[in-house]
Amino acid sequence: MLGMEQQDHLTVKSELKLLNLVQQWFEQFCLNYLSPSLWSESQLYRLNLALAEGFTNAVRHAHHALPPETTIDIDVCLFLDRLEIRIWDRGKPFNPDAIREPEPGTLQVGGYGWFLLRRLADRVVYERTLDGRNCLLIVKYALIGQ
């Protein structure tokens, strides 16, 4: 494991209209700290899309029964070899392994977001923490050694 280089934190209310703010914050972090020699535009696009999916899922699903003032915390941590995004919500936990993967060419209600996340990132983990929050961890590795 290589040491952390940079990190940032954002707290926003549980409102879909704040997605643009969340994405602009992330894009600014990337502009400030990510080296173009280690991070391709494609990787950054995938990370931004994964962040958008994680945030909107927290608003639409985890916080659907909670007041809009309920906050969502987002952390971004840059290491020498990877970028980690953590999205913290206060909703009821769910088991992503219980979601059936959509069959190609068929339609089903729900479940696409989790599989999209897993295809956009190198590692995705969703777990309940001891403080009663849920954490969605999205990891993407730099171009080092690839």
Rank of each mutant, 00 (worst) to 15 (best):
1 M>L: 12
1 M>P: 08
1 M>T: 08
2 L>K: 13
8 D>C: 01
9 H>W: 13
11 T>N: 08
18 L>C: 02
18 L>V: 02
19 L>E: 14
19 L>R: 08
20 N>K: 10
21 L>K: 15
26 F>S: 06
29 F>E: 05
30 C>P: 00
30 C>M: 10
31 L>T: 03
33 Y>H: 15
34 L>M: 11
36 P>W: 12
38 L>K: 14
41 E>I: 02
42 S>I: 05
44 L>D: 03
46 R>P: 00
50 A>N: 03
52 A>P: 02
55 F>L: 03
57 N>A: 03
59 V>W: 13
59 V>F: 13
59 V>E: 12
59 V>Q: 09
61 H>R: 07
63 H>W: 14
64 H>S: 06
65 A>C: 07
69 E>D: 14
72 I>L: 15
74 I>M: 15
74 I>Y: 06
74 I>L: 15
78 L>M: 11
79 F>I: 00
81 D>P: 04
84 E>F: 02
96 P>Y: 11
101 E>H: 04
101 E>L: 05
105 G>V: 02
105 G>M: 08
108 Q>F: 05
111 G>C: 06
117 L>M: 10
117 L>T: 00
117 L>C: 01
118 R>Y: 04
119 R>M: 05
123 R>A: 03
126 Y>M: 08
127 E>H: 12
127 E>Q: 12
128 R>T: 04
128 R>K: 08
129 T>F: 12
134 N>P: 00
136 L>K: 01
142 A>D: 12
146 Q>V: 08
146 Q>M: 09
